[in-house]
Amino acid sequence: MALNTPQITPTKKITVRAIGEELPRGDYQRCPQCDMLFSLPEINSHQSAYCPRCQAKIRDGRDWSLTRLAAMAFTMLLLMPFAWGEPLLHIWLLGIRIDANVMQGIWQMTKQGDAITGSMVFFCVIGAPLILVTSIAYLWFGNRLGMNLRPVLLMLERLKEWVMLDIYLVGIGVASIKVQDYAHIQAGVGLFSFVALVILTTVTLSHLNVEELWERFYPQRPATRRDEKLRVCLGCHFTGYPDQRGRCPRCHIPLRLRRRHSLQKCWAALLASIVLLLPANLLPISIIYLNGGRQEDTILSGIMSLASSNIAVAGIVFIASILVPFTKVIVMFTLLLSIHFKCQQGLRTRILLLRMVTWIGRWSMLDLFVISLTMSLINRDQILAFTMGPAAFYFGAAVILTILAVEWLDSRLLWDAHESGNARFDD
């Protein structure tokens, strides 16, 4: 018995066209964080690309023209004298008006014999932002004059995390709450300039795509075929072959399989920071003279006294001054041990922890910024005066060393310790 099946006739004509040209192939790229070699397709503007294995951002879609970056830099340069030299806060102490600005706080630190601690604050609040705007201006002028731009481009990517104007702005709020127990506070004209400078700096850093600047100024022929001998440069993120001198053909720094002496430098910085954190938390970090009496505060006791007036601000200072430094030390110690013992479990967790400490590390400088600003506000000789204690130097040095330890660690070593050939990683 035959089955009668109805015929289905399409209502619209289906047209099949042959592909007349070869589909576009992607360029081969190595991930600078996990060293995976993959094919990167062509990316349009405002599109980002991520590593298929570790999800690290390979290409950032946010990109401004150099002219727009230069305009932002010149605007920031105009704001800087007002943000640093004009009063941020006014207080009335014992019937006398006192003005506080950024430069005055750094000068008070240096004047009291601790120039190293003052230079830490100076670099993060004044030096690094000033280098940022002058570097962008150098790129703008240098591109037109045919100057060598490689050193500036190499420095810009590392400079971003040292620009800490946003953290200093939080420190202004913390210092205001600490001082309000002794005097009446009012915002100064410099505060508005400083807030504007923070906003412009944040926007500029978020749109400063150094890798795209490398592509514009020093374009290189990408690798179009897969080759395990391809290496990625950690300076400019170019994937290719080393030249005859073993250097990256684009930025001219040595092109090595792994960062040289990464573990040794990381261990040295980490152990030194552990040693410095002990006096930083045991010795007094601030000293207040009130009517001839002397009151010393460690980091913890200062947080407890701050909690009596504002528990939320005390929580912020606790996280930045105690929780973050010790968390960074514990995480980095764990990561280094996992590399030495070739741990194969929990790779995803370790990668996330490394990215976390990379982002939060700079916030530990908050305590030094609060001390710097408070020193310029309260300084009335023996009637009422505020000065920093010996722990300030140890704390600042420990924070900087932990930042350097994270920067010096080559994250690809975590993958080397893991089993080879993993296309995915999980716990």
Rank of each mutant, 00 (worst) to 15 (best):
T374V: 14
F38M: 10
L145I: 10
H261E: 06
W415R: 11
P254Y: 15
M147C: 10
F386P: 00
A18D: 11
F318V: 07
E21Y: 10
I177G: 11
L200A: 06
W107C: 11
E21H: 08
I185R: 01
G246F: 11
D63K: 15
E22Q: 14
A175M: 01
G61C: 15
M365G: 10
A320Y: 15
V133P: 07
W162S: 01
M120C: 03
G146H: 04
A223S: 08
S308P: 09
G421W: 12
K111M: 02
S372W: 09
L352S: 12
E42S: 12
R221Y: 07
P242E: 06
N101W: 03
M388R: 04
L323I: 12
H252T: 08
S309I: 01
L384I: 04
L257Q: 05
Q33K: 15
L139K: 01
N209W: 13
S308Y: 12
S45C: 11
L191S: 11
K178S: 01
I126E: 06
I303G: 06
V170L: 09
E228N: 12
W415E: 05
G188H: 07
L373I: 13
S39Y: 14
R350L: 10
D416S: 10
G246Y: 08
G142M: 04
L93K: 01
F369K: 05
E21T: 09
P284G: 06
E212Q: 14
Q344A: 13
N4W: 11
L352C: 11
T239M: 05
F238N: 06
P81K: 11
R221G: 10
R226M: 10
R350G: 12
P325R: 00
E86V: 06
I299K: 00
N101Q: 02
Y138F: 10
C51Y: 00
G173W: 07
T134L: 12
K342D: 11
R258L: 15
K229I: 09
A280Y: 03
S376A: 14
T11D: 11
A385N: 08
Y394S: 01
L23E: 09
R150P: 01
N422P: 12
I185L: 08
T402H: 13
L165K: 07
T298Q: 08
T201Q: 07
V275F: 09
S65A: 12
T110K: 15
S321Q: 04
M72A: 07
I136S: 04
G142Q: 01
I8L: 12
L154S: 03
D243P: 04
M147W: 11
K13G: 11
L323T: 15
M388Y: 04
A398N: 08
N379H: 02
T75W: 01
Y168H: 08
Q344T: 12
V163Y: 07
S65T: 06
Q108P: 12
K178G: 00
W214K: 01
V317F: 13
V331T: 10
F369Y: 14
V102S: 10
L154H: 11
G292K: 09
C266F: 02
W214D: 01
A137S: 07
Y138T: 07
K12T: 09
Y394G: 03
I299C: 12
R355Q: 15
Y28C: 14
I58E: 09
R221I: 10
A187E: 09
S376V: 14
L414P: 03
D367I: 00
K178M: 00
V406N: 08
L384D: 00
I371Q: 01
D426H: 14
I403R: 05
A312K: 12
A49C: 11
E215M: 07
I319L: 12
S39G: 14
L145M: 12
V275Q: 15
D297L: 04
P81L: 06
N143P: 10
L77S: 15
L353F: 13
G302S: 01
P325C: 06
L230S: 12
V210L: 15
L132W: 05
